[in-house]
């Protein structure tokens, strides 16, 4: 695929916005065209949150889509909201630690990741988002791991810089979880 049209969705606080920002920033370091568009407003605080990321070899016209070809699903409301929209032959990555039901779609590829469990093993539930990102990257190769590392270095600065290694570890574990 030359154009990745991804929607990442979940509860506020699960770090779906960060998934999107890391992916888009990594795309920039890979010299691709890339956009990150958040849903913003009250739903950011407690409700469901989502962002749209486009990573492309060509200049991006629309940063918005209602027919993504990739989904990262972190909770059930997001599954219900977005499973109808994904293109046939698209890819859905599901965090099964939270989403304990199947999608109604049978015309797409599905990757299931027990992300919370993997994150807990790493000692920090917060990096479940990076585990999911790792699984997504393994399947799509949308951006390079090198690009992701540089993106994490840009994003996690100051006192958060100590968390970079843990985040990379989580991404690697996510990659390993895809067989």
């Amino acid at each position: 695929m030359s154009e990745h049209l991804l929607v990442a969705a979940g509860f506020g606080g699960q770090g779906v916005m960060l998934i999107g920002q890391i992916l888009a920033t990594a795309g920039m370091f890979d010299n691709k065209h890339t956009t990150w568009l958040p849903s913003y407003g009250p739903e950011m605080r407690g409700g469901t949150a989502n962002c749209t990321v486009v990573v492309s070899d060509e200049p991006i016209a629309s940063p918005i889509t209602n027919t993504p070809n990739e989904l990262i699903i972190m909770n059930i409301p997001s599954l219900i909201k977005f499973e109808k929209e994904i293109q046939s032959d698209g890819l859905m990555v599901i965090n099964t630690s939270v989403v304990d039901r199947d999608t109604i779609r049978d015309d797409i590829s599905i990757i299931k990741v027990d992300a919370n469990a993997i994150a807990e093993k790493l000692g920090n539930l917060k990096v479940a988002n990076m585990v999911v990102l790792g699984a997504y990257l393994k399947k799509t190769g949308a951006v390079t791991l090198e690009g992701v590392k540089r993106a994490l270095e840009k994003k996690l600065t100051g006192s958060k810089a100590t968390l970079i290694d843990l985040n990379i570890k989580a991404i690697e574990e996510g990659m390993k979880s895809v067989t």
Partner: peptide, 10 residues
């Protein structure tokens, strides 16, 4: 507009 204000790109 709100989209241009809120989105990110390089």
């Amino acid at each position: 507009d709100g989209m241009l204000g809120q989105m990110m790109e390089p």
